[in-house]
């Protein structure tokens, strides 16, 4: 079984932003694998173990070569078999990313199963999973908390509004966007980390995948820090008096009740 996992490298949440010109200034960022993608990698490894035989997990990412390879090494250390790096600038948007991933996966002979994280924590677009599926003409399921492989079909449980769950059956090659709770991602072991260094990482260029500037649909500009919040108004007194004062402020000052 050919299993692909699409991952993204993102700045750690603790990273400080230092805006300079039309960039968010991430030079000093610590880069990590997008947290949701860890669930995707884990599910792929579980599926490989369940299917056995010559099943293979290929992890694939798109990003600047100088840093993005680290995220692939992390996934290889967790147990993925091989990796593909699509070298691309920071500014590659979701549309172009999905198109490049679809072509790269097709060029490898296609996938039986594709996993992604349900969204990346840097931009929160929640787009690449569905766009990738659309480019491949495949079904998708996002926010998936349970996954069960069947014969040519998979059954997933996904979360929708208000905690409601949907059970969906997807036929053929499909793209599953992992949510927290799908599994408990393993940590890379020391032998895993050593082995990862020897596993193959194939490098591809965007142009070789037929992706051009016209595939970039969205650009960012005018980065700004959030507006300063006024200092907090602390309400003193005993609980009854505090409550009376808070409700009064919410009604008369903030006007939200």
């Amino acid at each position: 079984m050919k299993i692909f996992v699409c991952i993204k490298q993102v700045p750690d949440t603790e990273t400080k932003i230092q805006i300079s010109g039309d960039t968010p200034g991430l030079d000093s960022a610590k880069w990590i694998m997008n947290p949701y993608d860890e669930f995707a990698v884990e599910e792929a490894l579980k599926l490989k173990a369940a299917k056995g035989g010559d099943s293979k997990v290929t992890v694939i990412t798109l990003g600047p070569k100088k840093r993005a390879t680290d995220a692939l090494r992390t996934a290889l250390a967790m147990g993925a078999d091989e990796a593909i790096l699509i070298d691309a600038p920071e500014t590659t948007d979701a549309f172009a990313t999905a198109k490049a991933l679809a072509k790269a996966i097709s060029d490898e002979g296609g996938a039986d199963q594709i996993f992604t994280g349900k969204q990346s924590i840097d931009q929160n677009n929640s787009s690449v999973t569905q766009m990738l599926a659309s480019h491949l003409g495949a079904p998708h399921a996002l926010v998936v908390g349970k996954y069960e492989a069947g014969d040519g079909k998979v059954t997933v449980e996904r979360e929708v509004e208000g905690g409601t769950k949907e059970v969906i059956e997807l036929t053929g090659t499909n793209v599953v966007g992992a949510n927290k709770g799908l599994n408990k991602p393993r940590y890379a072991s020391l032998p895993g980390i050593m082995k990862a260094k020897k596993k193959p990482v194939k490098e591809l260029e965007l142009s070789a995948l037929g992706v051009t500037d016209t595939d970039i649909k969205i650009t960012f500009s005018d980065f700004q820090l959030p507006p300063e919040k006024p200092p907090v108004k602390m309400i003193d007194g005993e609980p009854g008096a505090q409550s009376t004062e808070l409700v009064k402020l919410l009604r008369e000052e903030a006007k939200v009740i």
Partner: peptide
Amino acid sequence: KPLYAGKCSAQVNFQNS
């Protein structure tokens, strides 16, 4: 839109759409 956990925001522009 806000980016990077709300630590900054950016103007979103369309092209080739």
